[in-house]
Amino acid sequence: MSSFALPSSDSSPSSSGQSGGDTNTTTSSKFDEGVVLLEDKCNYVDALVLFDEVNTQISTLSLFSTNESISDVQTPYLKFLLLPFYKMLCMMGCRTDGAAARLSNVKNAQSMGVAFLTTIESLGGEVMGEDNVTIFHKLLGEMGGDEEDGSVRPRARGSSRDEKVARFRAQQKCSEEIKMITGKLQRRGRMDLSPEEMFEGGDEESLIRSLTTQQLKKCATQCIDELISMNQELEMLEMSAKFQSNMSARSPQELEDERIKQRDAANKGSGIKMTQVSIDPTSNQLLFKRQEARDGVFRPGWNLPTMTLQELGEIEYRDAMERAERDKEAEIRNKDKPTRYEYLVRDGLEDDIHKVDASAKVDRDWDDFKDANPRGWGNKMADVGDRNF
């Protein structure tokens, strides 16, 4: 995977002429398409391909400079600062076969997260925030030595409850700001205002800049949470990858010998010797046959483990990933499903005329159901009547 870094050139993209402007438009379109594939369709592989292409074009166009602050970055190019963060999410979401492949993905995602936060911090602390800067530096300080591939292996680190709550509240605050600014932009569009016309305290460019800044703040906080989760996952993945590597290096005969050795060790013991006495039906002579009762007769009365804790952890991890994928798909399927108007108001979607029209039938059906089924009609000795439920 290619890594994101700010180009060192100070050249402006506006000096590239008409062809440069066309290229910038293509870059922006690819970026937006990749965001849709990532957030709406969960198509991590195709989104990552587009983001890699955008990364290459950004480096070619020299849209950023290492000595800039965030106030020096042009508004249309602010969103490209989110590129390494989106690449990190794609790498974490890609399906892999085996712990070794997943380990490689998590390490690459970790590099993207570190690059994103480093870039945001270098552009000024007002976006990232002092608390996030402090936690980020602690994470960097807890990263271990270099691996063979040159990446760093972090030591597992938890997070206190207060820190988690603070980050959650910060993300919620940014989400509210994003929702408010988005509503202003939608109202400008419905009123067909020109980009330069002032409305609700600003023009279109200032609103877009504020919107992107809030997105950067929210993603920076989310990136901190992702890096902490990666630190904890990497330790388990390294153990699992090492186990799989050791197992794959052994021949089938060695594995069978090990299984027999473990079985014999479990059944080890002298046992109780017995003599079976029977009569030969032809000669009526007594026949003596010695037998041995193995120690297995005295095995515990409870069920013994059938797998190791590590194998159980891998199964639980796969199940959790599959559940998360199913929940995401269900959320996407239900996103455009008609719902009651009060829920549209709760979610801030009352300005969507198509959803409002669709909610009218749902509200009528709900009113008809309440008329046909008054509250308490199925309860014995209960009051019956409409309680506005």
Score class of each variant (00 low, 15 high):
375 R>Y: 15
26 T>A: 13
152 V>G: 03
109 A>Y: 00
9 S>Q: 09
170 A>K: 06
358 A>W: 10
5 A>L: 09
360 A>S: 12
245 S>H: 08
117 L>S: 01
241 A>Q: 04
366 W>H: 15
245 S>I: 01
386 D>E: 09
363 D>A: 07
352 D>K: 04
357 D>R: 07
347 D>T: 01
57 Q>A: 12
335 K>V: 00
288 F>L: 15
271 G>E: 07
205 E>S: 11
259 R>C: 11
128 M>W: 01
236 M>Y: 09
389 F>G: 05
317 Y>F: 12
279 I>Y: 05
142 E>W: 04
274 M>W: 06
72 D>V: 00
333 R>A: 10
40 D>G: 07
386 D>I: 03
258 E>Y: 11
372 A>N: 13
86 Y>L: 13
275 T>F: 08
276 Q>W: 06
14 S>N: 09
155 R>K: 09
29 S>V: 13
125 G>W: 02
24 N>S: 14
64 F>Y: 06
31 F>V: 05
95 R>L: 15
361 K>W: 13
377 W>V: 06
28 S>Y: 12
142 E>M: 08
226 E>L: 14
265 A>N: 11
128 M>R: 01
74 Q>A: 10
144 G>N: 14
15 S>C: 15
31 F>T: 02
122 S>N: 10
200 E>S: 10
223 C>I: 02
268 K>H: 14
203 D>E: 12
212 T>D: 07
84 P>R: 02
59 S>R: 06
204 E>V: 03
180 M>Y: 04
251 S>R: 13
17 G>W: 10
368 D>S: 10
384 V>N: 05
163 E>I: 02
343 Y>A: 14
299 R>W: 08
388 N>G: 12
214 Q>T: 00
53 E>F: 05
182 T>I: 01
19 S>V: 10
260 I>Q: 11
139 L>M: 13
120 I>V: 09
331 E>P: 00
272 I>P: 01
315 I>L: 12
343 Y>I: 04
197 E>Q: 15
153 R>H: 05
35 V>R: 08
315 I>E: 11
200 E>H: 08
131 D>N: 09
63 L>P: 00
128 M>K: 03
355 K>C: 08
172 Q>H: 04
210 S>G: 15
170 A>R: 05
113 G>R: 02
